[in-house]
């Protein structure tokens, strides 16, 4: 794959930090760039802040094949294309990390790691979520020594080896199919008696002779000396403890939303931002949220894109009202 598309490290436009932007979008995943595309096309003065590269979680997905209109695409490429499309419509992109926000005032402030600040009438939060850890003994110790959260990055290091995947959702099975290109065997350990992943993914893993399955079981410990050697598992129905020998453990058990910074926003019990799904508005006027960081039923690229579009149009309406109010004064 020879990628030659533009890169965030080479911004094409100058950012005027003295500007008051119509909207600042925090996060450059599918939701953020979708919001950026809609905001730019609405001719809002919009800027997106991303700390590393475009795509967010989708960038580490080997193949995306459930996005309508795109039969199959590498996640990293999709991220680059989102960025390209958004920039084409005039979105400004900053490669920086958001370190703080002041959202309560009518004029919002977003503080960056570089020491600069952005001011805007509205903010769209699209910070996504990170992979949840197991929180069992041995996990931290063996990160980088057999424990991984990124199949695209690390599967190649397990060529002809035996690995364990923990999880039963789309990510676990999808990434498992990618790991199967390298590993000798893959044992999926899942706490329930069936997978919640899409049926098409289940059909694929069940048909692949490299896969073994352990249901109704949870990982209690990751065991090894210098590297991962086994996992200790407990059957949740019988309480039986056993060990599964393995060279690696890939953990795909769900997500933790990146919302800790937004203390003034209402969140659900898991930390996802509560929004009005009609317009993606939060409990603070002028603050919208979209994508995997919000409380909702389905977290997929397609729903993130829809959230982003709705948030951008809602932000546009909000900013228009604010500007009209200001001009009447």
């Amino acid at each position: 794959m020879d990628i030659t598309i533009m890169n965030l490290s080479k911004p094409k436009e100058e950012i005027n930090y003295d500007d008051v932007f119509d909207v600042v979008i925090i996060g450059g995943g599918v939701a953020g760039f979708s919001a950026g595309i809609y905001a730019s096309r609405a001719r809002m003065n919009a800027v997106l802040v991303e700390k590393l590269g475009p795509g967010g979680q989708i960038a580490t997905t080997n193949v995306v094949e459930n996005y309508p209109g795109i039969p199959e695409i590498n996640g990293y490429e999709l991220g680059l294309k989102l960025e390209e499309q958004a920039r084409k419509h005039g979105l400004k992109v900053i490669l920086d990390e958001v370190k703080g926000v002041n959202l309560k005032e009518e004029l919002k402030t977003v503080k960056l790691a570089s020491g600069k600040e952005l001011k805007a009438y509205s903010v769209i939060i699209a910070t996504g979520a990170d992979y949840k850890k197991l929180g069992v003994p041995g996990e931290e110790k063996f990160i980088g020594r057999g424990v991984s959260f990124c199949a695209t990055c690390d599967a190649a290091f397990f060529k002809d080896k035996d690995v364990v995947i923990v999880g039963g959702g789309n990510t676990a099975l999808d990434e498992g199919l990618f790991i199967a290109n390298f590993a000798r065997s893959i044992t999926i350990i899942h706490r329930r008696d069936s997978f919640r992943a899409e049926k098409i993914l289940q059909e694929r893993v069940f048909a692949n002779p490299k896969f073994k399955f352990i249901f109704n079981s949870v990982v209690e410990e990751i065991i090894g000396n210098e590297k991962v050697e086994a996992v200790k598992i407990r059957n949740v129905q019988t309480g039986e403890i056993s060990e599964v020998k393995t060279d690696g453990v890939f953990v795909f058990i769900g997500m933790v939303p990146n919302t800790q910074m937004f203390e003034d926003l209402e969140k659900d019990e898991y930390g996802y931002i509560k929004v009005n799904l009609y317009d993606m508005s939060t409990n603070i006027p002028g603050v919208f949220a979209a994508g995997d960081c919000i409380s909702k039923f389905l977290r997929q690229a397609i729903t993130a894109a829809a959230d982003g579009a709705i948030a951008a149009v809602a932000a546009e309406k909000y900013v228009d009202k604010i500007k009209q109010k200001v001009s009447k004064k």
Binding site: N7, G55, A59
Partner: peptide, 12 residues
């Protein structure tokens, strides 16, 4: 490695 998206994000 070139196949690794986070690695590529980090290079700049």
């Amino acid at each position: 490695a070139t196949w690794c998206p986070p690695c590529r994000f980090e290079i700049p």
